[in-house]
């Protein structure tokens, strides 16, 4: 099941692994991505706090953790190919996986239909 935040992150929950990235909407609005600051493995974050950072030709932004948890792995490919975020934001350009602390937090997120509706209102 994939959930979405108002800040345009997605999180795919698969058992006790939560994979995190940014949505196509976010990638398009950032423009060409030039740098992704991946989180340290083992870093613990709370829901909606800064997980890592991203920079594009236009702006620098934080990426917020859709759920609380501990970083299990990061997508090292983004170090050499940050443009992957523009090419495949919701798939190949995942940024980190987390061990979620509390799956009940997903109640504060949107499902795909809700997120699509949310985008229309922006």
């Amino acid at each position: 099941m994939t959930y979405y935040t108002k800040e345009h992150e997605w999180v795919r929950i698969d058992g006790d692994v939560a994979m995190v990235g940014i949505t196509a909407y976010a990638a398009q609005h950032l423009g060409d991505v030039t740098f992704v600051e991946l989180p340290a493995i083992g870093k613990t974050v709370k829901q909606f706090e800064a997980l890592c950072a991203i920079e594009s030709v236009k702006a620098a932004s934080d990426i917020y953790a859709p759920v609380s948890g501990t970083v299990l792995s990061v997508n090292d490919e983004l170090n050499g190919r940050p443009e992957l975020v523009n090419e495949s934001p919701e798939d190949a350009a995942w940024m980190a996986t987390l061990k979620p602390a509390d799956l009940a937090e997903t109640s504060k997120l949107m499902d795909r239909a809700q997120y699509d509706e949310y985008q229309k209102g922006l």
Binding site: G31, D32, T34, V57, K58, E83, N86
Partner: peptide, 8 residues
Amino acid sequence: IQYEEGIL
């Protein structure tokens, strides 16, 4: 600011 192909 940019066209469809983008700044880069």
